[in-house]
Design a protein around this nucleic acid. Structure first.
Lengths: 349, 349
DNA sequence: AACGGTTACGTAATCGTTTTCGGCGAATAT
DNA sequence: ATATTCGCCGAAAACGATTACGTAACCGTT
């Protein structure tokens, strides 16, 4: 029957009054007589009137929509962050527009431009691994659209950031391996363009040096297929083929770590006796592999919550013409020790 | 400096012409003289003009936004579906608004209403486990807003659906277990309100009966904490405490299956020798646990792609006033056999 | 009777864009 | 010389909602 939702005018026509009166009646303005209000409310109910948000956006110059851009959605950490963002946005009556870049810089530029055109009220973004130019985000700054960077950030932009303490987490992981008596710890990492990779790699080197261990290039592997299961597999195969293979592997991501763990076992070595393994992120997966894998826990959901709260605050401030101060918030990481790196507790079947 | 993006009027004023001319010049109407076009293009470039989509939406009565509602985002299968949806939407220049219900019927109603008010062009939704009333979706049908249900669907609504062949997949899994010589196969399932749970449960029963095996109530467990790791753990503990514990477990979700697998091992039994385990979905996790777990592969990404394509087609048809025929598409499942259920190939360390 | 103050509503502008319906001058046709 | 066409552009309505401002009608006061 009815094809399109009722508008103010539909109500006004039924009652022989103007849309202005209807609008005011619905918003309970004191100007309107109780009788008219009652009549308007009734008709509005009957017609199932709902304000058209698009018209409101046009008039108010705000959309109550925030844009979220992540490298990939099918990823335990990022989906956790997204979940946190959505829950916060939901409570504040904001909607979330979601995009993924598949780690492509070009697509990142495309999506952010799209989002900017869409007049989102703010942007939450985790940079792709390949992103080294930030002009697409500078446009936001110039137009005073609040931006919060999370997880994969950059120093070049004066915007708010939410990160985890990548350095401390990685440092702790490597020190833990050294404390377990490991003397040749290998690293599995992704491209150094990404801030998280840089920090975790730096922490790896520093931890080794602090304990008087050599930093050996042949132990620092960049996974060619990304820090994935497959990337971890391949890098580990290479590592174990070295004249003196490492006695421990620290991977900057759980997927690669699990690849490493499985490859070590496949090559007939024991975990952790021959090679200890520690990952980063503490995915659900880490606790179900055999042996259960140590990993640096990264609070994904919380990062989403904090980032979204920060963005919404800035949007609010912006809207009230208050100045917004870019700030950086660092969330704690925590090393979860399981059997893959704890020699004493190791209980093999 | 500039606080808000340039509008048609800004361009028009700079050139002393009207917005109508500017609009036509930008859209390359034949009416406009080359000189004017050139001038407009130049000023538009200088001012970095971008059409305001909100104004367009208001005028065109379409938003080029689709709504997506899932039970939870942090979930390998659903995030895969979302990924597929987003990739298709992206190519068609649509944006995706994402919501999660956390399996709450109330929140499902709330989010769908919000989305409807937001005037999305269409809705993609996977129902929450507790959803038994569908009035919130009937509103979409009444207002002629295209809806496509995926994965968790219902029979009560005359809308398009995309599902996997839950019945066939589950049937194949149970038959496989029987073929491996198992005679007492247990089931781990979630609430029967969900269509997938119902179908997989029915297939379980039918497969047993086909092979002359009894369908025993004490082997059919509803996981109290949901079909999660924890739910799988608890249900399996109960199963193994039975006078005659099962020699195989089929779980309707991988998380519960992995919980089952780990619990079986923790209780000192061998997988698959004592108890075989098969899951459903074939998450990444399934292949990395020990022993690698058999599972019914469910094409998540493809489901997202197909659902989104179907929805966009319907939106297009709707927009051209063509009738839309609700249709149901069923995607194939495929049993992936790994060591957790294949006695012969089992290679324990 | 004239004025002031309410009450209760209407008028019209606004947000940015598209598009229909002209309009005006010049060129072409009859 | 008048009519027709064409090229180029402006005016204005439309999408749906909000809101500053204007204005009737009515009351009571002086």
């Amino acid at each position: 029957m009815k094809n399109s939702p009722a508008t103010l005018r539909d109500i006004a026509q039924q009652l022989g009054i103007t849309v202005a009166t209807v609008s005011r009646a619905l918003k309970d303005y004191p100007d309107i007589s109780p009788a008219t209000k009652k009549a308007v409310l009734e008709v509005a109910e009957k017609l199932r009137y709902r304000p058209n948000p698009i018209a409101l956006h046009l008039r108010n110059n705000r959309s109550r929509v925030i844009g979220v851009v992540v490298p990939e959605i099918v990823h335990y950490f990022f989906s956790s962050v997204i979940s946190g963002i959505i829950d916060v946005a939901d409570r504040a009556e904001y909607s979330v527009m979601l995009f993924q870049t598949n780690e492509s810089y070009q697509r990142e530029v495309r999506e952010t431009a799209l989002l900017l055109n869409s007049r989102v009220d703010g942007l939450l973004i985790s940079l792709s691994d390949g992103t080294e130019n930030f002009d697409h985000l500078r446009e936001y700054v110039e137009l005073n659209v609040p931006v919060v960077l999370f997880d994969k950030v950059c120093d070049e932009l004066a915007v708010s950031k939410v990160i985890v303490d990548d350095y401390a987490g990685a440092f702790q992981a490597v020190e833990h391996l050294i404390a377990q008596g490991r003397r040749s710890v290998a690293l599995l990492r992704g491209p150094l363009a990404s801030s998280t990779n840089r920090l975790r790699t730096a922490a790896y080197c520093d931890a080794l040096q602090k304990h008087g261990l050599p930093v050996r290039q042949e132990y620092m592997m960049e996974c060619d297929k990304g820090v994935s299961l497959e990337g971890g597999n391949r890098a580990t195969e290479q590592l174990m083929r070295l004249p003196n293979p490492p006695d421990a592997i620290f991977a900057v991501a759980d997927a690669a770590a699990i690849g490493a763990l499985n490859t070590v076992k496949r090559l007939g070595k024991r975990v952790p006796e021959d090679v200890a393994v520690v990952g980063f992120s503490d995915w659900e997966m880490a606790s179900v592999v055999q042996p259960p894998m140590s990993s640096v826990y990264q609070p994904g959901y919380e990062m989403g919550v904090v980032s979204a709260e920060m963005l919404l605050e800035q949007i609010e401030a912006q809207h009230n013409n208050q100045p917004v101060q870019p700030m950086t918030k660092t969330l704690e990481t925590r090393l979860i020790v399981r059997e893959s790196s704890a020699v004493k507790q190791s209980a093999m079947v």
